[in-house]
């Protein structure tokens, strides 16, 4: 046996091991590639599903945000409109009240108005045995009506701070009925507001 015999044998064994390892690695790689490819194929439908879900969720979210933005913008605009309308209505109201306050009190119409306001107030209380309160400007006119039509009624010594009309009170002070122009306007305010707003094209 020569000295090269065992070396050659060793080399052969090493070559064999290398070949075998190479084959194992290649076969392992092939199988891994096959498995990866299979896993990829299997994952595609799940991925597509996930992709569609993300898109659908995104659309839902976008829709939600869009509704939110449009909704609050609509409300903001509407609220500004309401405030602007209210300012306009208030302006008309103030102007109208100024005109009422400055109305001519010497004409027959105003005397008739005072007479009817007083008659209505007396009829609501159900007695003419009352104390009548009136503004400083109306006191003379009211006194005239009381003297002629309501013998039991008396005019309160203190003038009433109002635009016009009367407030009457039973003599024991238990019942009061306010028939001043101020009180009547206050009671009618919601209806008057609606009327004014409709002139601006608002309301139903």
């Amino acid at each position: 046996m020569t000295a090269s015999g065992p070396v050659a044998q060793l080399e052969q064994t090493i070559d064999k091991i290398i070949r075998q390892t190479e084959e194992e690695i290649l076969s392992g790689m092939e199988s891994a590639a096959g498995q990866s490819s299979q896993a990829l194929d299997d994952a595609i439908p799940a991925l597509e599903q996930e992709y569609e879900k993300i898109i659908a969720d995104g659309r839902k979210e976008a829709d939600k945000i869009s509704r939110q933005i449009v909704g609050s913008a609509d409300l903001e605009v509407r609220n500004r409109q309401l405030l602007a309308l209210e300012d306009a209505v208030d302006g008309v109201f103030v102007r109208a009240l100024e005109e009422v306050a400055a109305a001519d009190r010497n004409g027959a119409d105003y005397a008739a108005l005072m007479r009817s306001l007083l008659a209505e107030a007396v009829s609501v209380l159900g007695s003419s045995d009352v104390v009548v309160h009136a503004s400083a400007q109306d006191r003379d006119a009211v006194q005239g009506i009381l003297s002629s039509d309501y013998a039991g009624a008396e005019l309160a010594p203190e003038p009433l701070g109002c635009m016009g009309g009367v407030r009457i009170q039973s003599k024991d002070g238990a019942m009061t009925f306010d028939n001043t122009l101020d009180a009547r306007i206050e009671r009618l305010k919601p209806l008057i507001r609606k009327g004014i707003a409709s002139k601006f094209g608002a309301g139903n």
């Binding site: 609501v124 159900g126 002070g173 019942m175 009925f177 306010d178 009547r184 009671r187 009618l188």
Partner: peptide, 29 residues
Amino acid sequence: AAAAASKGGVQYSKIAEIKGPLVIVDDVE
């Protein structure tokens, strides 16, 4: 509605009793 609203109502000042959330008003017609 305007006619009804303009009439308003009578104010009474004789309060007989105040009990919990209730107010009992006297001499009401």
